[in-house]
């Protein structure tokens, strides 16, 4: 493997409460470009916690998180914010959209914060992403007017806005029925491999995890197994038929 996109080295995270809580313990994990990784484990095993650490939303108590081979430990909070803005797309278990903004405006927010595109380009790209995710008819609606599955797809669209190489999804299908789950899974699976994008998704759904390239299993904050279903792909696979073939202009 070349330089991993994201790497955890001996990461432990302890919540410093009166009774310290060990969220993640001594985790080593490296994810390369284009991988589609499932993180599984029983409830409370530290899956979400690990995802926050990989997305530098949270910092390890000991150990290191590296993004593109760069240590993130000594970065300022502004540098981390900049890295998240460009390099990481988050999809939370619950959609977490801004309720006052329309669907298309929600998708536009990361691009507007980045400020690399003009207002017109942002609008066009937002519409483009939403169309590819099958939400062309819902762009002007408020999040509350959408179904759970639709909102989750909007969240995915927002995560894709700045074309980050890494997508982190925390049980993106956890609150969806099987049809909607399937749809979101298809999208994520299509994203992985596009221009070397990696997707790390926490999931309860063993069936879904089985269909991903790699499955990391956690118990009590420790990695107990890390199985590759498919051989490592050097460059990524062909773009899927539908959802997320989103080129970077």
């Amino acid at each position: 493997m070349s330089v991993p996109l994201v790497e955890a080295r001996g990461v432990t995270r302890i919540l410093p409460l009166t009774v310290p809580v060990r969220l993640v313990e001594d985790v080593d994990l490296a994810v390369g470009p284009g991988e589609l990784v499932a993180i599984t484990g029983p409830s409370g095993s530290g899956k979400s916690s690990l995802l926050y650490l990989l997305g530098i939303l949270d910092a390890p108590t000991s150990g290191e998180i590296l993004l593109n081979g760069e240590k993130t430990h000594a970065m300022t909070s502004d540098q981390r914010a900049a890295l998240r803005l460009r390099g990481i797309g988050f999809v939370f278990q619950f959609h977490f959209l801004l309720p006052e903004f329309s669907v298309i405006d929600n998708v536009a927010i990361p691009m507007r914060r980045l400020g690399a595109l003009s207002g017109r380009e942002i609008e066009a790209r937002s519409a483009d992403i939403l169309t590819r995710l099958g939400l062309a008819d819902h762009m002007r609606k408020r999040p509350e007017q959408l179904s759970g599955g639709q909102r989750q797809r909007v969240a995915v669209a927002r995560a894709l806005a700045n074309d980050p190489p890494l997508i982190l999804a925390d049980e993106p299908t956890g609150s969806l029925d099987s049809a909607a789950s399937e749809q979101v899974f298809e999208i994520l699976s299509d994203i992985a491999g596009q221009d070397g994008k990696s997707v790390i998704a926490v999931t309860h759904d063993t069936d879904m995890a089985e269909r991903m390239d790699r499955r990391v299993h956690l118990i009590d904050g420790r990695i107990v197994s890390d199985e590759r279903r498919r051989p490592e792909r050097p460059t990524g696979r062909a773009p899927g038929p539908g959802a997320a073939g989103i080129p970077l202009e």
Binding site: A81, R84, I88, L98, L114
Partner: peptide, 16 residues
């Protein structure tokens, strides 16, 4: 609070 958390996870700085 939740919106703040979302925006920060997207990459907004404390200053923003």
């Amino acid at each position: 609070a939740r919106d703040i958390a979302i925006l920060k996870s997207i990459g907004f700085r404390d200053r923003d």
